[in-house]
């Protein structure tokens, strides 16, 4: 895990990435962390904010079209961040969630960005349905909303290198599941849970 330690050190030196456990405590049970997405460092920031013991069993979800592109990015993502790569534009018939489902089946935790793409603003945009489907299929996994503060300023879309500004990673209260809740209502509630941490 040498690479992983170097990455965490670098993130601490650049943006602090201090965790704020507002609605829950760090715990090794199975969790799906879902966060707003504004920069390439988001994954690293959440990863650094987690205690080392939890990192081993937590996998970030990364876009295969970005993180799988070069050998360097690939090894950062897979070895450094324990990431699971997903195809954002899957070929005919394939279920893009398959790698995530496999990870959850092993009992590990996931970090996902339900917006699907980076947004240039403070507050998250519309959530895609993946979170809803995973939440249904794994009813025992805790759903933890996460808000990443200031990361859109550290590395705005289009920037190649980050500027060091202090970022905080806020973990909220686990999102409850309501019986027979419709997909859209669930996603809106999930998004609001992230916004409330802002």
């Amino acid at each position: 895990m040498f690479l992983s330690r170097c990455l965490v050190f670098l993130v601490r030196l650049l943006m602090g990435a201090t965790p704020r456990w507002l609605g829950c405590e760090p715990h090794p049970r199975q969790r799906i962390y879902f966060a707003n997405h504004t920069s390439h460092i988001d994954t690293l920031a959440i990863w650094s904010a987690l205690p080392p013991a939890l990192r081993k069993h937590t996998h970030a979800v990364a876009a295969a079209d970005y993180w799988g592109k070069t050998a360097l990015r690939r090894s950062i993502a897979l070895k450094g961040l324990n990431a699971v790569l997903v195809e954002r534009q899957p070929g005919q018939g394939g279920n893009p969630l398959t790698p995530l489902i496999d990870t959850l089946k092993q009992g590990d935790s996931l970090i996902i960005f339900p917006e699907g793409t980076r947004r240039p603003q403070r507050l998250p945009g519309e959530f895609k349905s993946g979170l809803f489907r995973l939440a249904q299929q794994f009813p025992d996994a805790e759903l933890i909303p996460v808000y990443l503060e200031n990361l859109h300023r550290c590395m705005p879309k289009g920037a190649l290198l980050p500027v060091p500004l202090i970022c905080t990673v806020r973990f909220g209260e686990p999102l409850g599941r309501l019986p027979e809740e419709h997909k859209d209502a669930f996603l809106a509630r999930a998004r609001q849970a992230v916004e409330e941490l802002a």
């Binding site: 705005p156 500027v163 060091p164 500004l165």
Partner: peptide, 26 residues
């Protein structure tokens, strides 16, 4: 100095257009 500038600019609102200038400052 680096840590202090980081604190200063974290509280100061900046625009994404200043990204290059900020990078050079640090």
């Amino acid at each position: 100095s680096y840590l202090a500038l980081r604190e200063f600019l974290t509280l100061t609102p900046t625009s994404p257009n200043d990204h290059r200038a900020l990078f050079v400052a640090f």
